[in-house]
């Protein structure tokens, strides 16, 4: 289903992150005329196109969504670049995550670095990527009291997600480590290392 988001926006319901990523990638590969923003979310893709013919765009989106839905159903592998992030696992909350998970701190590290995560979507702050596919054992709630400042490069966990803080900001995620990789740089093109659909591997540094 495609919903109107004002005069210039169409919100495509995908129902799954995988289809959001496929649709996002397809639209970026062949960007329809007039499209300014393509914003994937866990179950939607927002397409903003001021000045485009909304009827024609809607028909095109229906067609591309149907094609990508068929690819999902056929279990065609999703392609996406893989990035490896070296991490020094010495975060202030490593022990609390271990305690909440009921495992030793060493195992938090092996479980965090043991799976390939996928960049779900970005939000909260420029370059802040919600990394999905975290080992369920590591799922832990946010801190009751957020920190007033979390340094850039902090590697963190909250709920079913992991993240790397792109810049210093307040934050309530549990810090398990840090990386020297700059995930956000306004001088770079694109400014964010993480883009939706990208696969991420953490490696103990």
């Amino acid at each position: 289903m495609i919903r109107m988001a004002g005069e210039h926006g169409l919100l495509v319901e995908t129902g799954s992150l995988e289809l959001s990523h496929r649709l996002d990638a397809a639209l970026r590969d062949e960007r329809p005329e007039g499209v300014v923003e393509i914003v994937p979310g866990p179950e939607t893709v927002l397409v903003v196109a001021p000045g485009a013919d909304q009827g024609r765009l809607r028909a095109l989106l229906e067609e591309v969504a149907a094609r990508e839905r068929a690819r999902t159903a056929a279990r065609e592998p999703v392609e996406g670049p893989v990035v490896t992030i070296p991490v020094v696992y010495d975060g202030a909350d490593l022990d609390s995550v271990a305690a909440l998970a009921g495992i030793p701190a060493d195992e938090v590290i092996t479980r965090h670095a043991g799976r390939e995560l996928v960049v779900g979507w970005l939000g909260f702050a420029p370059g802040f990527a919600y990394l999905t596919g975290l080992d369920p054992v590591l799922e832990t709630p946010r801190l009751d009291t957020p920190r007033t400042s979390v340094p850039a490069g902090s590697v963190a966990i909250a709920g079913p997600y992991s993240a790397v803080y792109p810049s210093a900001s307040p934050g309530g995620w549990r810090l398990i480590g840090r990386t020297s990789v700059r995930v956000w740089d306004v001088a770079a093109d694109p400014p964010s290392l993480f883009r939706p659909g990208m696969r991420v591997r953490f490696r103990p540094a």
Binding site: E37, I38, V39, V48, G123
Partner: peptide
């Protein structure tokens, strides 16, 4: 700065 919403950047 349109075109960066998917990277978490407001317009």
């Amino acid at each position: 700065r349109p075109g960066y919403a998917h990277l978490g950047v407001p317009g």
